[in-house]
Design a protein around this nucleic acid. Sequence first.
DNA 1: CGCGCGTTTGATCGCACTCAACCCGCGTGG
DNA 2: CCACGCGGGTTGAGTGCGATCAAACGCGCG
Lengths: 263, 263
Amino acid sequence: MTVETSIAPLKRPADAPVQLFLARLLRRSVLTGEEQEAILRLPTEAWTVGANRDFVAQGQETDRACLIASGLTARFAQTANGARQIVAFHIPGDMADLHSVVTTRAVSALQALTQSTILRIPHKALRDVASRYPAVAQAFWRDTILDVGVVVQSLVNLGRRDAAGRLAHLYCEMGIRYGQIGQNDGGRYRFPATQAHVADALGLTAIHVNRTVRLLREEGLIEIEGKEVRVLDWDGLAARAEFDDNYLQLDPLDFGGPVRTRG
Amino acid sequence: MTVETSIAPLKRPADAPVQLFLARLLRRSVLTGEEQEAILRLPTEAWTVGANRDFVAQGQETDRACLIASGLTARFAQTANGARQIVAFHIPGDMADLHSVVTTRAVSALQALTQSTILRIPHKALRDVASRYPAVAQAFWRDTILDVGVVVQSLVNLGRRDAAGRLAHLYCEMGIRYGQIGQNDGGRYRFPATQAHVADALGLTAIHVNRTVRLLREEGLIEIEGKEVRVLDWDGLAARAEFDDNYLQLDPLDFGGPVRTRG
DNA sequence: CGCGCGTTTGATCGCACTCAACCCGCGTGG
DNA sequence: CCACGCGGGTTGAGTGCGATCAAACGCGCG
């Protein structure tokens, strides 16, 4: 059980975020050439956002969805008294708020953790494609359900694992996800979140994240160099995390992309 | 700011679970009479499940969705080593796995916490309705997104609140949700989960749940009698929980049902 | 009556929080 | 050129919330 990332999932990996998004859909849904064309032809509008800036505020009404083209962004939920909790990280190729197509009021905020470029796609265009092609509507629905799976895993993470398990699980998940977009180089991937960000995601303090990182390093599982994560012992890390990648794949339609961790 | 539940949301509240489900959809989506008829005419098959029985196993392939008609059920996620975490409680009128329509492999198990009756609805029938009526497809998609909001709140709950806050939040949420189906009688509602179940949902141990219940009781916020929860001080409880009910409503299309807590 | 489940209480332990520094690299400005 | 501030990472000491271990109680039920 190793992570192999030798083959990029697309012909034009990095410079075509819409293609990454399409690839993400195709990993779980079957779409005809015409339907794929329709998605690739969606109108987009590029937008650059500085680090630590909300680009969608909680409760805000929007008329376009955000496809992450580059950078690292996160979905935040906040309690009444202002404490923030990261619900999900979004990496290039993710449509961070595809759900906003059917619920225009944002339930949670979106923030850029590093400088990021966003492609904004009008809801109207997405709704048009979805109602013209029911298979696309299903693919969209299915994609939002994948996001739910990720959130559910986070819930298990916070509810049932200690700090080391949570952190190990995060590194496993991000390793797989970066691998799916061709940015995991043999267990090395760039994950530019600060320890404070990670703390907000894992329900810990930044200080304790720091100590837990050190712990995993001392166990020989990972190595951190700047913003780059290096997984030294994938099996050990997955065992520490009790990591089961099923929730990321939705197997039956998976064509067996470049990153496989079991089977 | 009080909980008022004098008016039942439907003409035939308890004995018509499909109507409850439809009411749930209509709380957030606009559907024509024809579309509503189509939902009410969905074929169903009643099924009784004993307490503590899984009626959908994790990883199982299904061809029908489960509408809760009576009883209390929960969605469970489990880690590789078997620890279980309750992701969501499902009460009558909830379609516990509407998402299974587009992803037939169950990502998490469904278990009856008390004896429950389930109406099983074939995916094919749901898909047919959804593709015949795009508005219904949207309503289904939107409903799954509401579920996500509940899970996200749970995530914030585990990540950012202490035991008392988590428990208070749960009692607030269930109070609202039972109110929406006409089963909250002036702050009193029946919530037949054991303290062990609550512990599995809140990421605590049953023992600590017990002590936290006592704490809330000593603070004069709630009273527990058997399986009935009595909220003595809604404002106080909501404050303790930092409860914000926005995530349950998706306002713009809400017609202002019987239960309102703000505004 | 005995059994099992759920609840309740007590005593102790330990993981993660809090408070408090300090280091380092970087950018800015005197 | 150095002073300074700032964001991010690192380390130490002390504390507390919630887990763990252990036991008893009440109640429904066979």
